[in-house]
Amino acid sequence: MATSEHQLPKIKGPSATTLPRRGFVEALLGAGFLATAAAFIYPVLRYFVPPQAVDPGGDSVVAAKVGDLKPNSGKIFRFGSRPGLLIQSADGQYRAMSAVCTHLSCTVQYRPDLKEVWCACHNGKYGLDGRNISGPPPRPLQAYDVQVRGDEIYVSRRREG
Protein backbone atom coordinates (compact mmCIF):
# COMPACT_ATOMS: atom_id res chain seq x y z
CA MET A 1 0.00 0.00 0.00
CA ALA A 2 1.29 3.41 -0.88
CA THR A 3 2.55 5.37 2.01
CA SER A 4 3.43 8.51 0.14
CA GLU A 5 0.02 10.04 0.64
CA HIS A 6 -0.27 11.86 3.84
CA GLN A 7 -3.70 10.76 4.88
CA LEU A 8 -6.27 8.16 4.34
CA PRO A 9 -8.10 8.91 1.18
CA LYS A 10 -10.09 11.89 2.13
CA ILE A 11 -13.13 11.22 0.18
CA LYS A 12 -14.44 14.34 -1.35
CA GLY A 13 -18.10 14.28 -0.64
CA PRO A 14 -20.10 15.49 -3.55
CA SER A 15 -20.98 19.07 -2.79
CA ALA A 16 -24.55 19.93 -2.20
CA THR A 17 -24.98 21.34 -5.65
CA THR A 18 -23.67 18.29 -7.51
CA LEU A 19 -25.23 15.85 -5.08
CA PRO A 20 -27.22 13.30 -7.00
CA ARG A 21 -30.71 12.49 -6.00
CA ARG A 22 -30.73 11.64 -2.32
CA GLY A 23 -31.26 7.93 -2.69
CA PHE A 24 -28.76 7.30 -5.47
CA VAL A 25 -25.78 6.28 -3.37
CA GLU A 26 -27.92 4.10 -1.15
CA ALA A 27 -29.54 2.51 -4.17
CA LEU A 28 -26.18 1.81 -5.78
CA LEU A 29 -24.85 0.37 -2.57
CA GLY A 30 -27.99 -1.67 -1.97
CA ALA A 31 -27.91 -3.08 -5.47
CA GLY A 32 -24.24 -3.91 -5.10
CA PHE A 33 -24.80 -5.65 -1.78
CA LEU A 34 -27.69 -7.64 -3.18
CA ALA A 35 -25.68 -8.65 -6.24
CA THR A 36 -22.67 -9.74 -4.22
CA ALA A 37 -24.89 -11.55 -1.76
CA ALA A 38 -26.43 -13.39 -4.69
CA ALA A 39 -22.98 -14.19 -6.09
CA PHE A 40 -22.14 -15.51 -2.67
CA ILE A 41 -25.26 -17.46 -1.84
CA TYR A 42 -25.98 -18.98 -5.23
CA PRO A 43 -22.87 -21.19 -5.39
CA VAL A 44 -23.35 -22.18 -1.75
CA LEU A 45 -26.96 -23.24 -2.34
CA ARG A 46 -25.90 -25.22 -5.39
CA TYR A 47 -23.12 -26.72 -3.32
CA PHE A 48 -25.66 -28.08 -0.86
CA VAL A 49 -27.42 -30.10 -3.56
CA PRO A 50 -26.05 -33.64 -3.51
CA PRO A 51 -24.65 -34.52 -6.94
CA GLN A 52 -26.18 -37.14 -9.20
CA ALA A 53 -23.01 -39.22 -9.31
CA VAL A 54 -22.83 -41.55 -6.38
CA ASP A 55 -20.10 -40.89 -3.91
CA PRO A 56 -17.30 -43.38 -4.54
CA GLY A 57 -17.61 -44.44 -0.90
CA GLY A 58 -14.00 -45.20 -0.31
CA ASP A 59 -12.35 -48.48 -1.00
CA SER A 60 -15.31 -50.75 -1.43
CA VAL A 61 -17.03 -51.36 -4.74
CA VAL A 62 -19.70 -53.66 -6.02
CA ALA A 63 -17.72 -55.79 -8.45
CA ALA A 64 -20.57 -57.94 -9.67
CA LYS A 65 -23.91 -59.47 -8.80
CA VAL A 66 -24.19 -63.02 -7.58
CA GLY A 67 -24.89 -65.06 -10.69
CA ASP A 68 -22.92 -62.79 -13.01
CA LEU A 69 -20.07 -65.22 -12.82
CA LYS A 70 -20.09 -68.92 -13.53
CA PRO A 71 -17.75 -71.12 -11.52
CA ASN A 72 -14.28 -71.19 -13.03
CA SER A 73 -14.53 -67.75 -14.66
CA GLY A 74 -13.32 -64.22 -14.09
CA LYS A 75 -14.51 -60.67 -14.60
CA ILE A 76 -12.73 -57.33 -14.83
CA PHE A 77 -14.29 -54.57 -12.72
CA ARG A 78 -13.34 -50.99 -12.00
CA PHE A 79 -11.60 -50.52 -8.70
CA GLY A 80 -10.97 -46.86 -8.03
CA SER A 81 -8.77 -45.71 -10.83
CA ARG A 82 -7.54 -49.13 -11.88
CA PRO A 83 -8.99 -52.42 -13.06
CA GLY A 84 -9.56 -55.30 -10.67
CA LEU A 85 -10.18 -58.98 -11.36
CA LEU A 86 -12.95 -60.92 -9.68
CA ILE A 87 -12.73 -64.69 -9.99
CA GLN A 88 -15.12 -67.43 -9.08
CA SER A 89 -12.92 -70.49 -8.76
CA ALA A 90 -14.07 -73.93 -9.85
CA ASP A 91 -15.14 -74.75 -6.29
CA GLY A 92 -17.36 -71.67 -6.22
CA GLN A 93 -15.19 -69.39 -4.06
CA TYR A 94 -14.87 -65.72 -4.90
CA ARG A 95 -11.47 -64.09 -5.02
CA ALA A 96 -10.43 -60.63 -6.08
CA MET A 97 -7.14 -58.94 -6.87
CA SER A 98 -5.66 -56.08 -8.79
CA ALA A 99 -5.77 -56.75 -12.52
CA VAL A 100 -2.66 -54.70 -13.24
CA CYS A 101 0.26 -56.98 -14.07
CA THR A 102 3.28 -56.21 -11.92
CA HIS A 103 5.58 -56.60 -14.90
CA LEU A 104 4.56 -53.92 -17.40
CA SER A 105 1.06 -52.97 -16.17
CA CYS A 106 -0.97 -54.88 -18.74
CA THR A 107 -4.42 -56.02 -17.66
CA VAL A 108 -4.41 -59.66 -16.59
CA GLN A 109 -7.22 -62.19 -17.16
CA TYR A 110 -8.47 -65.43 -15.74
CA ARG A 111 -7.71 -68.51 -17.81
CA PRO A 112 -10.30 -71.22 -17.11
CA ASP A 113 -8.19 -73.82 -18.91
CA LEU A 114 -5.14 -73.16 -16.71
CA LYS A 115 -7.18 -72.25 -13.61
CA GLU A 116 -4.68 -69.43 -13.24
CA VAL A 117 -4.47 -65.71 -13.76
CA TRP A 118 -2.63 -64.98 -16.95
CA CYS A 119 -1.09 -61.89 -18.51
CA ALA A 120 -1.24 -61.95 -22.26
CA CYS A 121 1.57 -59.46 -22.76
CA HIS A 122 4.53 -61.63 -21.78
CA ASN A 123 2.96 -64.87 -20.63
CA GLY A 124 3.14 -64.12 -16.92
CA LYS A 125 1.14 -66.35 -14.60
CA TYR A 126 -0.28 -65.84 -11.14
CA GLY A 127 -2.02 -68.16 -8.72
CA LEU A 128 -5.56 -67.59 -7.56
CA ASP A 129 -4.23 -65.82 -4.49
CA GLY A 130 -2.32 -63.39 -6.72
CA ARG A 131 1.07 -64.96 -6.18
CA ASN A 132 3.38 -64.77 -9.18
CA ILE A 133 4.04 -68.32 -10.36
CA SER A 134 5.95 -68.07 -13.60
CA GLY A 135 7.02 -65.72 -16.32
CA PRO A 136 8.26 -62.16 -15.96
CA PRO A 137 6.07 -60.77 -13.10
CA PRO A 138 8.38 -59.68 -10.28
CA ARG A 139 5.74 -59.32 -7.56
CA PRO A 140 2.36 -60.79 -6.64
CA LEU A 141 -0.85 -59.03 -7.60
CA GLN A 142 -2.39 -57.15 -4.71
CA ALA A 143 -5.17 -59.31 -3.30
CA TYR A 144 -8.46 -57.73 -2.23
CA ASP A 145 -11.12 -58.79 0.24
CA VAL A 146 -14.40 -60.13 -1.12
CA GLN A 147 -17.70 -60.07 0.71
CA VAL A 148 -21.06 -61.20 -0.53
CA ARG A 149 -23.87 -59.07 0.87
CA GLY A 150 -27.30 -59.94 -0.40
CA ASP A 151 -26.91 -60.51 -4.09
CA GLU A 152 -24.02 -58.09 -4.47
CA ILE A 153 -20.35 -58.95 -4.37
CA TYR A 154 -18.31 -56.26 -2.61
CA VAL A 155 -14.60 -55.97 -3.09
CA SER A 156 -12.49 -53.90 -0.74
CA ARG A 157 -8.86 -53.15 -0.19
CA ARG A 158 -7.19 -55.11 2.58
CA ARG A 159 -6.73 -53.08 5.73
CA GLU A 160 -3.23 -51.94 6.54
CA GLY A 161 -1.25 -54.01 8.97
Binding site: I11, G13, P14, L28, L29, G32
Partner: peptide, 15 residues
Protein backbone atom coordinates in the same frame (compact mmCIF):
# COMPACT_ATOMS: atom_id res chain seq x y z
CA UNK B 1 -21.14 -6.94 -8.46
CA UNK B 2 -18.07 -6.11 -6.41
CA UNK B 3 -17.29 -3.32 -8.83
CA UNK B 4 -20.69 -1.82 -8.05
CA UNK B 5 -20.22 -2.04 -4.29
CA UNK B 6 -16.79 -0.41 -4.19
CA UNK B 7 -17.72 2.98 -5.68
CA UNK B 8 -20.99 2.74 -3.77
CA UNK B 9 -19.08 2.50 -0.52
CA UNK B 10 -16.72 5.25 -1.63
CA UNK B 11 -19.56 7.61 -2.35
CA UNK B 12 -21.34 6.63 0.86
CA UNK B 13 -18.26 7.33 2.97
CA UNK B 14 -17.90 10.65 1.22
CA UNK B 15 -21.49 11.43 1.99
Amino acid sequence: AIAIVLPGLWLYIGK
